[in-house]
Design a binder for these strands. Structure first.
Lengths: 121, 121
DNA sequence: GTTATATTTCGATATGTCTAGAAACATGGA
DNA sequence: TCCATGTTTCTAGACATATCGAAATATAAC
């Protein structure tokens, strides 16, 4: 797909994340990694009814923040890292145009927040 | 304030950005940097009625993504970098817990998307 | 084929958000 | 004081989203 998103894609992705159940699902999937999780397991873990969660998962998938694959009777959802990267890039795009003083601390602090452990050095 | 946000703060920030006018304002303010812009100038630049924009600016400020200061008759809005950093950190928090393979590309690509110029090396 | 499991779609209600006209409020200049 | 400029609050209507019971669909095991 496109590496650079436009504003309507960004709004769709942000709107998808701006809801408690969906944000929890997204973070759950981020930690689960590429293996992903079955829809039913997610619903059980988050204590959300199946039908309600199904709608939320569809919203995340439509926003390119998650993907689905079938395995037997289950549907496995996994985070879409490319879509996630595109959103984060869009948010901070151009912030350093000629102004590294305001941009650099933001990026470095973001990195620090994510990767304090030795795994990301 | 708090360096680490909770989920309700994250939802508020994401919801604030999940709207065309507000997302445009946010990106405008990111580029404007700490000097910020007057509310009226933003409204003119984005062709949004003053009262409508005022509501949007209040939403961004409430979400800790923007701050306001008065200068004469004008109200100058500027991006809140600390709040922005907190949101980005929250989104990718824990994604690398034991799985640097999935986390590192995400972070590196985000950096690449933001800072291709020599200003951020 | 029948039954059990997994997930999605349908339908209806409730709740929340966007928008902009009009009025109110604040500040600075004549 | 009076007026002009800049911004916010009030209000109401239009629109979008969240939720979940019930029904429908898909797959696998027996």
């Amino acid at each position: 797909m496109s590496r650079n998103m436009d504003i309507s894609q960004a709004i769709e992705a942000l709107g998808a994340l701006a809801q408690e159940s969906r944000l929890k699902v997204f973070r759950l999937l981020l930690r689960a990694g590429p293996e992903g999780m079955a829809a039913g397991d997610i619903a059980r873990k988050l204590a959300v009814p199946h039908n309600t969660l199904s709608v939320h998962l569809a919203v995340l998938a439509r926003a390119n923040l998650a993907g689905a694959r079938k395995e037997g009777r289950s549907v496995i959802y996994a985070v879409n890292l490319e879509g996630t990267r595109a959103l984060l890039s869009y948010l901070i795009e151009d912030c350093c145009r000629g102004k590294p003083d305001t941009c650099l601390p933001l990026i470095e602090a973001t990195l620090a927040g994510c990767c304090t452990a030795e795994c990301c050095t």
